[in-house]
Design a protein around this nucleic acid. Structure first.
Lengths: 216, 216
DNA sequence: TAGATTGTTAATCGATTAACAATC
DNA sequence: TAGATTGTTAATCGATTAACAATC
């Protein structure tokens, strides 16, 4: 994970990441729907320290009642409000290769109210094809398509060599934040937030920590 | 990203993540193979501050020469050595759904010398099928298979409900570090390192930062 | 009231950045 | 020697943790 932002929020980014984790845990909990839940319960379910949880919430107000805990439903919906996911968030995806296609069909995104509403490619073979419930569109039609869709979030799953170019087109089309899977650094205006997901990087950190590595 | 470790290395985890980024950038650079490279050049290419780069290296010794910079090849191979990726690292994958399959065919993993050497599933429909260059094996054969393969790293791409169970089987089979794509917290012995990749979480942080969100 | 649990403060811990002496 | 660039120190900045008064 890495990111850039053009302004500063009080809450640390790790706190925001954990808020998403709390949200997912609460969604999961809904089946057994207990009326209330304590920070100790959250620690139990997420592995995140109870004090950390309370601190994370405190950036955004007061949520619980001393001696009681949190009303489960209310907690979940307030976290959704903070993360800006109460309503469905439309997301564009560019690059309909194996990874892009897998993300389009990834069920866990729905938990967070994210919906991939359009998929783009530059490959003639793929444009016009049906993929999941969408028709792959020509990348050249990006701006046109987003005039109607008004998506502000996009996912980039193109090869590294074309990622910068695609990112710039996305911004032209009104995108404000990007989840970038291409292993390359994007250079974009400071008001555009980028988060990078790099599988090789993740594996490298694991490899470093293997017991046979002398470099600890 | 998140993790657990049972011991402590001097280098901060963010430094290790950046080392992987430097490594990838150097691999990329190889085409134009300049003899030497400076920390300022690295900043140019990765967006990571030059002082940060030098600091990150300093956890592991001295690498460059004042007034000159770093010998490109040597820098790359020393970083590979630190990250424990000079030799091919065998990796197991469990869960051959869309995401698992996409990862098996993901070319960027080869840059880091990672090779998925076996794929497992519990679905009768999938076991025995050819996927990329591998035959999908029964999860029940995990330990047997890894007796030969000696992989220490595994990737989990199964549904959240079965992730804990799979993780425990992986540890039984000799796996020491896990890259977990299932959106659930794994409870494992402290000497097993886990890194979680959570797409919903990534999107949630982006959603939080959208200009229309009042909670900044 | 006694027990439980919050929200917040203060202390600790960790990571980044800037500056610069050392050195090629 | 003059210019470039490292490795490292010290200062700054940021995040986590523990403790506890407030409160249900």
């Amino acid at each position: 994970m890495s990111e850039r932002r053009g302004y500063r929020s009080k809450a640390p980014t790790p706190a925001l990441e954990r808020l998403a984790t709390y949200f997912a845990a609460l969604s999961d909990l809904k089946r057994s729907h207990p009326e209330t839940i304590s920070s100790a319960d959250i620690e139990e379910r997420t592995g995140i320290n109870a004090a950390q949880f309370r601190k994370d919430l405190s950036y955004f107000g007061e949520f619980g009642r001393p001696g009681i805990g949190y009303i489960t439903d209310e907690l979940q919906s307030r976290i959704a409000r903070i993360l800006n996911i109460e309503k469905i968030q439309p997301v564009l995806l560019v690059g309909t290769g194996n990874l892009g296609s897998a993300l389009m069909g990834y069920p866990a995104l729905r938990v967070g109210n994210f919906q991939i509403v359009a998929a783009f490619d530059n490959n003639r073979q793929k444009i016009g094809r049906r993929l999941w419930n969408l028709t792959v569109q020509d990348i050249a039609d990006l701006t046109n398509a987003n005039n109607d869709l008004h998506a502000k979030i996009a996912i980039i799953t193109v090869p590294a060599a074309s990622a910068q170019d695609v990112a710039e087109q996305l911004i032209q089309a009104g995108i404000r934040t990007i989840l970038n899977f291409a292993p390359t650094a994007l250079r974009l205006p400071p008001d555009v937030m980028v988060r990078n997901v790099d599988f090789m990087q993740e594996l490298a950190v694991l490899s470093f920590h293997l017991p046979d590595n002398e470099n600890h």
